[in-house]
Amino acid sequence: MSLLEVKQVNHSYDSKKLFKWKNQSNKILIDISFVIEEGTCLGLIGTSGAGKSTLGKVILGIQPPQEGQVLFQGNDIYKADKLTRLKLRRDLQVVFQDSYSSVNPRMTAEQIISEPLENYEKLTVGEQRRRVIELLERVGLNENDLKKFPHQFSGGQLQRINIARAIALKPKLIVLDESVSSLDMVTQSLILQLLSELKDDFGLSYLFITHDIKAAFSISDQIGVLEKGELIELYDSKDQFFSSKHPIVKQLRDSILAEHPRFRTLTTKAN
């Protein structure tokens, strides 16, 4: 049984206008089906407005799709009873792009990370603190950061705290929605490295949503290309992406910037 199975998900956002005949329905997701196996990472790339984030929400159980099913370990997450859903939430975690807006500015790092622990695990005060310190150290911070507030951290450090919070309950699947997009290059590669370490250590699975093709390739086992709500292609290897003949994929491929000025295509003049 695979960890997550998405079956023919369709979703559209309706815009309600004053007059009924003006109502529009914008299809966001069209017939999406894919499978994520345990311990693997699916990278989802696409331009803005392609429906990447909506798909992330559907998988997290935040946004019920209008049609189709999302099976997590064989259970439909939108039809499960209350108890199963409670357990599901533990196994599904998310890290968003904007690290500052995903934490409460009035909470210290310790409070932020211990919130899921308080909700799901009955730990003594001492145990809980030990767990938080463990988690902080796992993501490359230390005990001194316990009492700090979000504004005292840099974007990269705060993203580490978000990751620590996400892994606190040892989940099975983490949805990374543009988690590294706003960080600078060095920080980005450090976070990507951390994520792939965590994946190996805990046997985590990721859904890595991004528009950065290079970042997606560096961490994913599978790559999916989403365009206007359709999952147009799904690859098991980089080579398939580079040999694909699909026009949208071609356009994406052409927008990858050169890694060395020798290969530049945009400009020709240089002194």
Partner: peptide, 21 residues
């Protein structure tokens, strides 16, 4: 050097993918 080393890359061994096409 660190900047250049740590950037995510699409290079496979020697040939850059972007220029194999």
């Amino acid at each position: 050097k660190k900047l250049l080393r740590t950037r995510p890359t699409l290079y496979s061994q020697k040939q850059p993918y972007t220029y194999m096409l």
